[in-house]
Simulated assay, not measured.
Amino acid sequence: MGTVFLGRSPGERMVAVKVIHAAFAADSTFRQRFAREIEAARRVGGFHTAAVVDADADAEHPWFVTEYIPGPSLHEVLGLHGAMPPRTLYALALGVAEALEGIHTCGIVHRDLKPSNIIVSTTGPRVIDFGIARAFDSTSLTSTNVVVGTQGFLAPEQLAGAACTSAADLYAYGMVLCHAAGAVPLPEGESLESALALLPANLVHVITRCLTHDPARRPTCSEVLEQLTETHRPSGDWLPPPVRTMVDLHSAPTV
């Protein structure tokens, strides 16, 4: 879509500035999508997402600014350190479910939840990038027969081109947790048993429900949170030391 710069506000706060590439800015349909991304981010802004500071979808070079969340993406963390320990998986499960609950409460489907759209920060996991999010009550701008999202985290109904509801995010959520436990994204039709076997025992049941083929049988975020909080007892730092070091380096003063 564009380039993201690290910026500084007049009040010395660090911000992330997304500037759209000129080739996309010339496309009126893309500008509609970008304006929708801004609106979705404004509506969702909360503790587990990045708050919008300012934006202009009509500028010659469309742009928008969000708070800067210091920390690597979950994709970077897994690429360097591999599977996460149980305490980290639980914290991820709770934090991302809480973020999705807030997103869905605003009537938004993220549609592209994946490790690179989750920032690992000192305050817990933060969900970002609503570039292809869609309001429940809006008209899709996606072209006919084009599947939007990232292979390996797409729900079966997304792959089939069917209606996409909040249940699709729960499927992606389940796949993110399996990925964080050491599984690679699975090709369509491949058994999930090997991926589920990598999860801590107390996570298996709820993630299995998230990954069911029928979206009507998947739990809501509230149900996920209720089940997880019944079995989880926080213990110590949620991040292993090498990952904590990664996060601390992102939080260090930037010149």
Rank of each mutant, 00 (worst) to 15 (best):
I103G: 02
Q158S: 06
H250V: 05
F136I: 15
M1K: 07
D56R: 02
L74Q: 11
E12K: 14
R43K: 07
M14A: 13
S166A: 15
T212A: 13
K18D: 08
I38E: 02
F5R: 02
T254K: 12
V15L: 03
P253H: 07
T88I: 06
E101P: 01
V109E: 00
V204I: 10
D58C: 04
T212L: 15
A23C: 08
R8S: 10
I132C: 02
T231C: 12
D137G: 05
T208C: 05
M246R: 13
A135F: 15
E98T: 08
H61Q: 15
T150H: 13
H110I: 00
F136W: 11
V206S: 07
E60C: 04
E223V: 13
D54G: 09
M175E: 14
E76Q: 15
G46V: 06
D112Q: 01
H75Y: 10
V109F: 00
G71P: 03
Q227D: 04
A160S: 03
A201G: 14
K18W: 13
S73E: 13
I128L: 06
G174F: 10
T142I: 14
G131C: 10
A216P: 08
P240M: 11
V109D: 00
L154Y: 03
L196P: 05
H232M: 15
W238N: 04
K18M: 11
S222L: 06
Y173M: 05
R126V: 15
S194L: 10
H250G: 02
Q227W: 05
C210E: 06
V15D: 07
A216Q: 08
T105G: 03
A23M: 07
E157A: 01
S166M: 07
I38W: 04
Q227F: 09
C106F: 01
P156M: 01
V17G: 02
I108N: 00
M14Y: 14
V44F: 00
Y90A: 14
L141K: 01
A57S: 14
L74H: 05
V19P: 01
S28A: 14
A167Y: 06
P200R: 05
E188M: 10
H21K: 13
L192P: 13
H104S: 04
E60R: 14
H81S: 04
A195P: 08
L196R: 04
F30G: 01
A168L: 03
H179T: 11
A201D: 08
F136Y: 11
G82S: 10
T245K: 11
S235D: 14
L154Q: 01
H205Y: 04
T49E: 05
L249S: 12
A201Y: 05
W238F: 09
M84A: 11
S9D: 11
L239P: 03
S166R: 10
